[in-house]
Amino acid sequence: MACTEITRRQDRREGLRYASGLSDTERGIAEAIDAFPVPHEAAETDLRAVANAIILNLKTAKNHGLTILPGVLAIAEEVIE
């Protein structure tokens, strides 16, 4: 396919920049936004509940046609107890 003037204009790379290449104005806006702290609470996860959920999934996997490697359920229950 021959390059025509139309395709040359479409394929030109002039004026393109990297996403990380901010101008001074853009950088000032970004810094102003980052200056305000966002209040958020620390996530508290009950690890016992997570472990119990994993064991429940392992126990019920056979009901859904999944196969579990031998000993995985026993090891998981030993770790919990």
Results as ranks from 00 to 15, higher is better:
Glu5Thr: 07
Thr45Leu: 14
Asp11Val: 07
Arg48Pro: 09
Arg13Trp: 05
Arg17Val: 07
Ile80Glu: 07
Ala2Asn: 13
Ala42Tyr: 04
Ala61Lys: 02
Glu81Met: 06
Arg27Gln: 12
Pro70Leu: 00
Glu78Ile: 03
His40Pro: 05
Asn52Cys: 04
Leu22Thr: 00
Leu69Lys: 15
Asp46Thr: 03
Arg48Tyr: 11
Ala43Leu: 15
Arg13Phe: 07
Ile55Gly: 02
His64Lys: 15
Ala42Phe: 08
Ala61Cys: 08
Ala2Ile: 00
Asn52Glu: 10
Lys62Ile: 11
Ala51Arg: 12
Thr45Trp: 15
Arg27Leu: 11
Glu31Ile: 08
Phe36Gly: 13
Val72Gly: 11
Leu22Met: 05
Ile6Asp: 13
Ala53Arg: 03
Ser23Lys: 04
Arg9Trp: 05
Glu26Gly: 01
Leu69Asp: 10
Lys59Ser: 07
Ala19Tyr: 06
Lys62His: 09
Glu31Leu: 10
Gly65Glu: 00
Glu81Asp: 04
Glu5Cys: 14
Glu77His: 04
Ala61Val: 00
Ala53His: 06
Ile75Thr: 12
Met1Trp: 00
Val72Thr: 14
Leu58Phe: 00
Asp34Ala: 15
Ile55Arg: 02
Ala30Val: 12
Phe36Lys: 15
Ala51Lys: 11
Glu5Gln: 08
Leu16Ser: 10
Glu78Leu: 08
Leu56Tyr: 08
Asp11Leu: 13
Lys59Gln: 13
Leu58Arg: 02
Ser23Phe: 05
Glu78Ser: 02
Gly21Gln: 11
Ala30Met: 11
Gly21Cys: 15
Ala51Asn: 06
Leu66Ser: 10
Glu31Arg: 09
Glu41Ser: 15
Ala76Tyr: 03
His40Glu: 15
Ile75His: 12
Gly21Glu: 14
Leu73His: 07
Ala32Val: 05
Leu16Arg: 12
Asn52Ser: 04
Leu56Ser: 15
Ala51Gln: 07
Thr7His: 01
Ala19Pro: 11
Ile55Phe: 01
Glu26Ile: 03
Glu44Lys: 08
